[in-house]
Design a protein around this nucleic acid. Structure first.
Length: 288
DNA sequence: AACCGGACCTGTATGC
DNA sequence: TGCATACAGGTCCGGT
């Protein structure tokens, strides 16, 4: 579910509430193994810490604690982070509840009378995880990921060189988090369409000019998706439970094969690439 | 070594 | 209605 724009939307919503807040309690659900360390250790390490800042790297969301450790969330396919009052009813798919006291008073809809509120990690399919990482572990995780597509430090040349070192389908490269971080199935299809590149095009045949188009397309699509607060096909919800809006702007993702291309009217086609369903326009995205 | 396919989970939609 | 199958926004692992 959640790709870069969805995780960034959640980060921006949680940031004003959580930064400067104090972690009072952390509570497990029915599947404590979603947290990748023994719970007694986890609780001892986290309880009483202050949350300094919220960071995003690719599809990971990290709460930086006053110890410089990172409380890291990956939402997998169906993970959600929800703000609510501490006494709000808990779903059986809630695997971690953080009870915090924010630095500033919160509206009564969110906080109880003592000013406490909860952030719950809910994940039906349990592909998501929560971990507590040392600064070195967080740096190592970040080091395994490719560049942030919205970071101006990423140049077309850099992306081009990154692509040239592989000989896989372009779509597979976009989904590979070590090439560029944060792209998933929705935004890979959308960016390839905007760039006019065939999803099965081999990365080692891409020209510098095409890499430039791809980077521009990625940035256009991701920025617009963040501005629309993400894409909700079915499950995605933001930290307040609201749906995103970018599904209304999707050009190709999710359209059935045979549907008209929104640009030229040609029948869209569907392929299976890197194990994922891939929709594209054979005319706007010619092979070769 | 790089790359592909299956496995990991639950829920929903579709077809028989 | 019931059952079986396919598919879903992600990543990891093992085999080739």
């Amino acid at each position: 579910m959640p790709e870069l724009p969805e995780v960034e939307t959640i980060r921006r919503m949680l940031e004003p509430v959580l930064s400067g807040s104090r972690l009072l309690m952390v509570l497990p659900g029915e599947h404590p193994e979603v947290v990748l360390m023994p719970w007694p250790l986890f609780q001892r390490a986290v309880r009483g810490r202050r949350i300094e800042q919220l960071e995003r790297r690719g599809k990971y969301l990290a709460l930086r604690l006053d110890t410089d450790q990172r409380l890291v969330f990956h939402l997998g396919m169906t993970g959600e982070l929800r703000l609510s009052r501490p006494e709000a009813p808990v779903s059986r798919h809630c695997h971690v509840a953080l009870v915090v006291r924010p630095a500033l008073p919160m509206p009564p809809a969110l906080a109880d009378r003592r000013g406490r509120l909860a952030v719950r990690f809910v994940d039906v399919r349990r592909f998501g995880h929560v971990a507590l990482l040392s600064p070195a572990e967080w740096a190592a995780l970040s080091g395994r990921l490719g560049s942030e597509p919205l970071d101006p430090a990423l140049t077309p040349q850099h992306l081009w060189e990154r692509l040239r070192t592989h000989r896989m389908a372009l779509k597979a490269a976009l989904l590979d988090q070590s090439v560029v971080a944060g792209i998933g199935n929705i935004y890979a299809d959308e960016a390839l369409f905007v760039a006019g590149l065939h999803p099965a095009r081999r990365t080692d045949t891409v020209t510098l000019e095409e890499a430039e188009r791809l980077l521009a397309a990625l940035r256009r699509v991701l920025s617009a998706a963040i501005a629309s607060r993400g894409t909700t096909i079915r499950d995605y919800r933001d930290a307040q439970g609201q749906r995103g809006g970018y599904q209304r702007q999707l050009q190709v993702y999710g359209r059935p094969p045979g549907a008209p291309c929104p640009h030229c009217g040609t029948s869209l086609e569907r392929l299976r690439l890197a194990g994922r369903s891939t929709t594209f326009c054979p005319r706007c995205q010619p092979a070769g």
